[in-house]
Amino acid sequence: MSGEVETRKLVSFEVAARALAAPIELVRETVDPRPITPLFGVPAAIVGLVSLRGELLAVLDVGRLLGIGVARRDEGSRLVVVDVEGRQAALLVDRLGPLRTIARDALRPPPDTLPATESALLLGVVSLPERPLAVLDLRRVLDAPPIRPFRERRDPLEPKESPTR
């Protein structure tokens, strides 16, 4: 996965007017939005559940996780399915951006001015001519405090899911 020396490829998207990106290695696919079944008793960052080819995926609101806003749910919205060492989830984004190829050293650490909740979930920030692109640290995102307990409790389900992959 980390064979690339020279460049890195990033799937860029936008949430709450913020340009975000995810490393292409951790992205499984992008899909059109589909009916989300809401869940009760879960943090607000967990929007609900979707069924993707018979596989149930939790839909996460990155905006709420980062504390930068709330993801829209409209026709431009897309689901970015991520797979981090077998742990899969769907990120609800406002819209998808282009596939970006950046130099590996272009990724810089997030500036200190950002809130800790936000910078804790970022790998770094890429300065693009138009605006800065924040690259998400998907492992931390999936382990983010609002959803960790949820993940601990769902642990027993994991062996079931893993063989399907």
Partner: peptide, 14 residues
């Protein structure tokens, strides 16, 4: 849709 597919294709290629 094509863009999405192209992105997915690029993801697959990656």
């Amino acid at each position: 849709q094509t863009t999405l597919l192209a992105l997915n294709a690029a993801i697959e290629a990656a």
